[in-house]
C-alpha cells in the first residue's frame, strides 16, 4: 500500500482506567518529514508514540503507519519502523559490536549483512577503538547515537524517536540533530518527541500536546506568525497557558 502519508491518525485515544492519556488525537505525517511532538512531561507523547509503534493497543480510534493499521497489522508495522526510546535500551553488559549484531539478528538480517552493517556503523560513528568495549563504558551522547544507529539497521522507512536527547549536553544534541537531518534527507520519515523548545525549531512541522490533546499543529514559522512571537518557547508558554 503506497500512500504519501507516512502516518495518519484519526481520533486515537488511550485510557488507563479513568485516566485519559491520549484524547482523540488526529493528524498526518508526510513522507520524508521531520515531525515533532512537543509537550510537557505527562502530556501523552510517549503513550501516543507507543500506540503507533504497536507497543500499546489503543482504547479507540484508528491510525495507519507506513500504510498498515495499528489495530490489526502491528506485525507488518514492526518491520517498517525503527524505534528509540527515552530509556537508553542497548545492553550495558554487551560490547558495541555485540549489541549491533544482536539487534541485526532479531530483525532477521543475514549474517553477511549484519557484519557489513556493523563495520559501516562502527566507522561512521568513529567507534573503531571502542567496538569491543562494553557499552556501559561509552559516554551518554555516544550511547544515544549508537542506539539511533542500531534502530536503523533494518532500513526502516519511518523512525520514532521518543525524547532521544534527554540528559545530553548541548553539543551532543546538535550533533544528534545533524544525524536526524541526514536521516530525513535520505527519504525517511522522522517522528520525534521532545520537550526542548529549541529542538522544536528544527522540525518541519510540530504538534503541541497538552493533557492528552493536540492543541496546535503547524510549521514553526507559521506558528510564530500566527501568535506573533519570535521563539517556540514563547508560543508554547502562550498556548499551554491559555488552555
Amino acid at each position: 500500500m503506497e500512500t504519501d502519508k507516512a502516518v495518519s491518525v484519526s481520533k486515537l485515544s488511550r485510557h488507563f482506567g479513568k485516566f485519559i492519556a491520549v484524547d482523540e488525537i488526529s493528524f498526518e505525517v508526510n513522507r520524508g518529514e521531520i515531525f515533532g511532538f512537543l509537550g510537557a512531561n505527562g502530556a501523552g507523547k510517549t503513550t501516543a508514540i507507543k500506540m503507533l509503534c504497536g507497543l500499546l493497543k489503543p482504547t479507540s480510534g484508528e491510525a495507519t503507519v507506513a500504510g498498515f493499521s495499528i489495530n490489526s497489522e502491528t506485525a507488518k508495522i514492526k518491520k517498517n519502523i525503527g524505534y528509540m526510546s527515552q530509556k537508553f535500551s542497548l545492553y550495558d553488559d554487551l560490547t558495541v559490536k555485540e549489541n549491533i549484531e544482536f539487534y541485526g539478528g532479531i530483525y532477521g538480517l543475514s549474517r553477511e549483512k549484519i557484519s557489513g552493517k556493523t563495520d559501516q556503523l562502527i566507522s561512521e560513528l568513529n567507534l573503531d577503538k571502542m567496538k569491543n568495549s562494553l557499552t556501559k563504558s561509552l559516554p551518554l551522547g555516544w550511547k544515544q547515537r549508537l542506539a539511533l544507529s542500531t534502530s536503523l539497521l533494518h532500513d526502516p522507512s519511518i523512525i520514532f524517536l521518543d525524547e532521544p536527547t534527554g540528559g545530553v549536553d548541548p553539543i551532543s544534541r546538535r550533533n544528534f540533530w545533524r544525524i536526524i537531518y541526514e536521516i530525513a534527507g535520505s527519504g525517511k520519515t522522522v517522528f520525534v518527541t521532545t520537550h526542548y523548545m529549541d529542538e522544536a525549531e528544527y522540525c518541519n512541522r510540530i504538534s503541541i500536546m497538552h493533557k492528552g490533546k493536540i492543541i496546535e499543529l503547524g510549521t514553526p514559522t507559521g506558528l510564530k506568525q500566527k501568535y506573533n512571537k519570535t521563539t517556540m518557547q514563547d508560543i508554547f508558554i502562550h498556548i499551554v497557558g491559555r488552555n
Binding site: L55, S89, L90, D92, G108
Partner: peptide, 13 residues
Amino acid sequence: ETGTLEQILVSPV
C-alpha cells in the same frame, strides 16, 4: 526493568 524488552518488542520478534 532496563527497557531493553521494549526495544525487542518493537522488532518483528
